[in-house]
Write a protein that binds this DNA or RNA. Sequence first.
RNA 1: GCCGGGGUGGUGGAACUGGUAGACGCGCCGGACUCAAAAUCCGGUGUCUGAGAGGACGUGAGGGUUCGAGUCCCUCCCCCGGCACCA
Length: 863
Amino acid sequence: MQADYHPESIEQLAQQYWDSSQAFRAKREHRKPKYYCLSMFPYPSGKLHMGHVRNYTIGDVLSRYHRMKGYNVLQPMGWDAFGLPAENAAIQNRVPPAKWTYDNIAYMKRQLKSLGFAIDWSRELATCRPDYYKWNQWLFLRMLEKGIAYKKTQVVNWDPVDQTVLANEQVIEGRGWRTGAIVEKREIPGYYLGITQYAEELLADLDKLPGWPERVKTMQANWIGKSYGVRFAFTHDIRDNTGALIDDGRMWVFTTRADTIMGVTFCAVAAEHPLAAHAAENDPALASFIDKCKRGSVMEADMATMDKEGMDTGLKVMHPLTGEPVPVWVGNYVLMGYGEGAVMAVPAHDERDFGFARKYKLPIKQSISVRNLSFDEAAWQEWYADKEHGICVNSGKYDGLNYEAAVDAIATDLAEKGLGEKKVQWRLRDWGISRQRYWGCPIPIIHCDTCGSVPVPDEQLPVVLPEDCVPDGSGNPLLKREDFLNTYCPKCGKPARRETDTMDTFVDSSWYYARYASQFKSGAMVDEETNYWMPVDQYIGGIEHAILHLLYSRFWTKVMRDLGLVEYSEPFSNLLTQGMVLNLIFSRHPDNGAVEYFSPEELEIIKDEAGRVIGAKSLADGRTVDFQGMGTMSKSKRNGVDPQAIIDQYGADTARLFMMFASPPEQTLEWVDSGVEGAFRFLRRLWNFGVRFGNGGGPANAAHLQKVTRFEIHSVLKQANYDLSKHQFNTVSSAAMKILNALDRLAGVDDEVVKEGFSILLRLLAPITPHITHILWRELGFGEDILQAPWPEPLAEALEQDEIEIVLQVNGKLRGNLTVAKTASKATLEQLALAHPSVQKHLAGAAAKKIVVVPGRLINVVI
RNA sequence: GCCGGGGUGGUGGAACUGGUAGACGCGCCGGACUCAAAAUCCGGUGUCUGAGAGGACGUGAGGGUUCGAGUCCCUCCCCCGGCACCA
């Protein structure tokens, strides 16, 4: 056993042992409960970043802990390998995306291994391999058959930088989720997946996920956006140039406030609405306004702050209940994509309509009343929109009805006329998956001049993506690949062309967890082993996937279930969203408005007398640099720390321990170099203690100290086990430190208490720092393999105490301690408390009003 | 605006169903070792006050419940994240 702690050799030895014994190979095993622990798989971008290390360490701690607790654990790993960075790298380096990707995978796999993760590498997959994406294609074809997948041409979000379509979920504040470029609207044909068909279930099943963070469920519920209301039509006889009624003489709207229908004074339609287009034909002013709206709506980011503007179309539609004519306006706030692209406007009871009516001097008509408050057209008041207390007024036969009764009555009346009914409206849209990109899964469709778009027959799958293309930045390189493009129509046999769009890479990640859980050799998407492992017991990943990936995966799972491929309805039982990794940010702001960021290692950091960072000096030019506070590690801010450098300097165990100790998994983690050193110092102390222990140590200590130490160790262990159940690994790490401190205090190291305590310490720490604990366990003769050792449980016998410490309070304030026999009676305790000098002093001769005794805890004397 | 999560020393963060606030680590201060430094080890470290024993104050602010509140209730302030012309 080496005298000093040298992590590199220790870690290598431990990893070799795990490799050669295939320690993490997962097999079906029905005598043990199963535990499927999954971390979101990485995109092979080049090398691991700290976020990866944190993510996978959390997963590994959970995996190893459950393994030791007797679970049959599966922890797989793979690669989310399709995507744009590979194409961008290809353009820069003139290397095919495939080669770039496979090289990155090889390098990152080595890094993952050097961190000692307990991964079953036999299940490794990469989504860019044909044997994987074949099943994307196969399932897509099944969805086509079922009508879940379909083709349509519609206005889509176009990312001008990545030159591709984005799903609604991928547009954040009007910008592309990857590029940050302002998204444009384009009309493009593409394939869509009918996720809206599952909206109801996706929303309802959130309640079946108690193991998910509340905020993720809220975000999904908001995204799905269910609202109850009434869809109804205003009638008209407006005809187009050919003399045909526009939309059969019906202008449909959706409202959640049908009870205010008698307060309608105008309607507003989106710029894209057919009535708007019709009215614009003979009205150049209106046409230019509509044009402006369409252009304006490109910038979704500005929409929220944009003024509500509108213009009268001059058209009138008929109110379905009163028969009165209602003017139709074009409003820049009406969205073509939500509801019907047209709304009824009730200025009296909708704040936005109110503002609009005031601006354009449109009539305001009160139709509900709350507690007889007086309505004033001059100013908006909260109660105008109060649906809970509103009672219909000025509403003819509906007068006196409350919200619910009014909606029911009005919906019934509308239905009788065939002009409306209650309806549920969703915010969720179908998922557009066509991407005009090369490095992705080909959509298995063949375009034939005679037969149209024809699905590729199953036996011709997979449609293999050529791996040797080198994109040059000018569109999809597949368009130039005649060998890929040219094929024959499966229906008529005539020459035809392949679809060149590829699938959104979120398709790839929507079912990989089910593939891991299967035997790959079977010629199917998944096999029945998936029903053994699934659902994932613990999923770990970043909060940034709260909507996109997690919603798509839930949808995909339900589709697979409905196709009879799997038996479960939800893929992830428990979800842990780990916090970001932060580091100091330093920058300079020259007068020209530019920002120059500095990596902390280029700087001498300046602290105030309390040790707080206040600034820095550049090592290069000696001039000052501003401190910007803590922020997420990122390339652009130049504040990333390379995990490899940490592993090389301190070893994987130190990196793992620091990450687990510095903060709880769900919170942000601040990277602090001195904290990393602290973690290393602890491991070195642990090693040195092991060396002394192995050498036989000194004489045994007094029995009393032994008993106290043993009590302390088992108490700490009890708390640590509780903390583990809550995934609070920072306090588990601190428990390990406490145990070592206690053992250190017990200078003699050859007695049974130390042996027991050290074995508890090693096992408690094994999930977090697997290498050092593996070696110490073996070298010190505790056993062959610490992974096989039983998880330590506190012993009642060690927690037994004859004497306990009781806290003494006067009026709830701490005044002293009492050490008493555990068996002391309440009367004895009261007596002892009153006799205590400090209590005597505060009593000052008076009698106690009341004495509260909490057994085993405290005595409070009330004066 | 709506929804969700927070606010505790110099600092990251602890605190079981209300029961010794600040565990554990970092930083800082002092000491030992050393020619010296680094490393290591030992001690101290919420604020104010006091020579000291001690005392007072203290978990964003204010109120309340309670023998006792970081924890429960009410009002308010601030921060972070998500959603948002959604009809």
